[in-house]
Design a protein around this nucleic acid. Structure first.
Lengths: 155, 155
DNA sequence: GGCAGCTTGTTGTGTGTGAAATGAAAGGTG
DNA sequence: CACCTTTCATTTCACACACAACAAGCTGCC
């Protein structure tokens, strides 16, 4: 019994680990629906998805709302622009701001992906069964509880 | 009403997005406990945590059990070896295998981190309240349901 | 025994990432 | 109005990642 751990730590039962694995699988399961069809990454999907709710939005706005740092948003926007899904225009009132807008091609993409996203979410809900709403509430509660800890909003 | 989305897609309410944000926050909240103190990353933490349950384990074993691909395990192991937390020895029976073992220094680290991990998990459980076990069951159920989809076990 | 084929681990390669630095524009103060 | 500070976006740099190629070792079949 030389190196026998006194009280073994079970990584498989560790909630942070489980959540990372789950999150990775859920994202992978959905991203394969748009990665092949449209050649966009998760970051790009998030930007486009946010643009579907509010057209003409600055990089800063997306950075604040979509849990991505500024360089990530900036690069995702550039890739989306190069792919023809988004246009970048400088705001005339405040010329520091870069307003992002969906092109018709971008709108077509989000129009096609929205039902796919809803279907995918419905599949997840089916697995969760009647506990669906309770589960979502717990996710939100945990997320909110940790929000301030990760509160590094020094820009 | 030119670009008004017909039925807006709410990224904030999208479960895959919520889970990614949650997972990121939970991991960040815990990793800050060992990042500063020991200078190790999440990958390295996982390897060490797994070694705490089963000493002397091959890279392949960790790859299979810890949701990391082979290069990631290999590089994490090399960094841990350089930092003096693990040793790598070639298995004499099968000289392809590299057995990883914790050094005393590595055992000290995991001994110090285990109670911190348990405390952190207890905090999460406190937020979840009586729904704790139900929540974990749902996490496991979802993860299991998606396991086969991500089943790219072509090594 | 020798060669084909598999397994294991490491190393390359192109890409993405995050932190800090930079550039560019607006606001505030004397 | 000049100067300084703040804000926004991009770029730089060092590093991590994923996928693929690779070298080394084992196995089995003839």
């Amino acid at each position: 019994m030389k190196g026998a751990p006194v009280s073994a730590f079970k990584l498989d039962d560790f909630l942070p680990y489980q959540l990372t694995v789950l999150s990775s699988r859920v994202s992978a399961g959905f991203s394969k629906h748009y990665r092949n069809a449209y050649g966009i990454s998760v970051s790009e999907w998030r930007v486009v998805a946010h643009l579907s709710q509010a057209d003409s939005v600055s990089v800063r706005e997306i950075h604040a709302r979509v849990d991505m740092d500024k360089p990530k948003v900036s690069r995702a926007a550039s890739r989306l622009e190069a792919a023809g899904y988004v246009t970048k225009t400088i705001n005339p009132q405040d010329r520091r701001l870069v307003e992002l807008s969906l092109t018709p091609k971008g709108r077509d993409m989000i129009a096609a992906l929205t039902p796919i996203a809803r279907d995918y979410e419905a599949q997840l809900s089916a697995v969760l069964g009647e506990a669906d709403q309770a589960f979502r509430d717990r996710v939100a509660a945990l997320s909110a509880a940790l929000e301030d800890e990760t509160d590094l909003d020094r820009d």
